[in-house]
């Protein structure tokens, strides 16, 4: 892997981590409303998968969606402005944390009904197949989504119609506070794939390089005509499900154990150990991220709230 690529992944993961920490602060200050789901701990999944996509490939995910926006290259300012409900937000302040999208970057958004976007992903892929392109769809969902009907109907349809979708299960071990084994009859998400004609592969979701390799292979398999693919990313969210999570359902020891596998730490240690980068280079990247976030916060804070008239726009395309 080229040095520049690895450093860019490092930078993106740090950006996501610190973006989420800023969001947590702004939420505590009451500047972000509604629900807020942080991606801290899972950074390698969004960064490694999206790094593997080719121009033309689509991204769609659930409500833990800030990271995917940043990884596709959405500007930090408008993403943060959306969370603050500002007119300059990516969704003009109408979507909020759970409904970020950046269609110009083929990012179709975050969706807040668990599993509801999985058929949408299937439809995005259907359109690509219909148009005869080589493009594929990266569809992300949590372990909790694999128990809803949408998931099963979508994987089945993708299998029957050979649709170009990589189904990316982000298994962070809990659907809200319910552990996988308390909600799913099979605890390995990949074991659900064969029922729909997919082999499925488990991946260390804390290792951005492994995530990248697996996603690249899956996308290639689709372009080689092997049909939809299924990846299970084993990962963990270091913070709660959303803000105000009492965290009664897991032990501190468990969290600490997973924190040893911090995806940023893993990459950082690799870069230093292999002498790919020195500490100063990484610190410079950290500083760049800090400045980007200072600018983003300023942009978001200074942006206006949507005008009253905006309430009535975009209900229909044709009014």
């Amino acid at each position: 892997m080229e040095k520049a690529t690895l450093l860019e992944w490092y930078r993106q993961m740090v950006l996501i981590r610190r973006f989420e920490q800023r969001c947590s602060d702004l939420y505590s200050l009451g500047k972000i409303g509604g629900f807020l789901h942080l991606y801290i701990g899972q950074e390698a999944v969004a960064v490694g998968t999206i790094a593997a996509r080719q121009p033309g490939d689509h991204v769609i995910t659930a409500y833990r969606d800030h990271a995917h926006a940043l990884a596709v290259g959405s500007e930090t300012g408008p993403v943060l402005a959306e969370l603050l409900g500002k007119a300059t937000g990516v969704s003009k302040g109408k979507g909020g944390s759970m409904h970020l999208a950046d269609v110009n970057r083929q990012y179709w958004g975050g969706y807040a009904v668990v599993g509801g976007h999985v058929p949408l992903a299937t439809g995005l892929a259907l359109a690509e197949q219909y148009k005869g392109t080589d493009n594929a769809v990266l569809c992300y969902f949590g372990d909790g989504s694999t128990n809803i009907g949408y998931f099963h109907e979508s994987l089945n349809l993708a299998g029957v119609w050979d649709l170009p979708v990589v189904f990316v299960a982000e298994n962070n071990q809990y659907g809200m506070g319910t552990a996988v084994e308390r909600a799913s009859a099979v605890t390995r998400m990949v074991d659900k794939a064969p029922a729909y004609g997919m082999e499925g592969k488990q991946v260390d979701g804390m290792d951005v390089m492994a995530v990248y390799e697996a996603t690249s292979a899956a996308l290639q398999a689709i372009r080689d005509g092997k049909g939809p693919q299924f990846l299970e990313m084993l990962t963990y969210r270091f913070e709660g499900h959303s803000m105000g999570d009492p965290l009664r359902y897991r032990t501190k020891d468990e969290v600490e154990k997973w924190r040893e596998d911090d995806p940023i730490g893993i990459l950082e240690r690799y870069l230093l150990k292999e002498n790919i980068a020195d500490r100063e280079e990484l610190e410079n990247l950290d500083k760049g991220v800090e400045q980007e976030l200072v600018d983003a916060v300023q942009f978001a804070e200074e942006s206006p709230f949507p005008a009253y008239e905006e309430l009535f726009t975009n209900i229909y395309v044709e009014d």
């Binding site: 689509h58 179709w108 509801g116 976007h117 999985v118 058929p119 949408l120 992903a121 299937t122 439809g123 995005l124 892929a125 259907l126 359109a127 690509e128 219909y130 148009k131 009907g149 949408y150 109907e153 979508s154 089945n156 349809l157 029957v160 119609w161």
Partner: peptide
Amino acid sequence: PRRVKDTPISEMVIGGAATGAAMNGL
């Protein structure tokens, strides 16, 4: 079959996939 597609008995994905395909230009 490209333009007249028989689906499984799966209303949730019929509704959702049709919507997704529409979002993506069809």
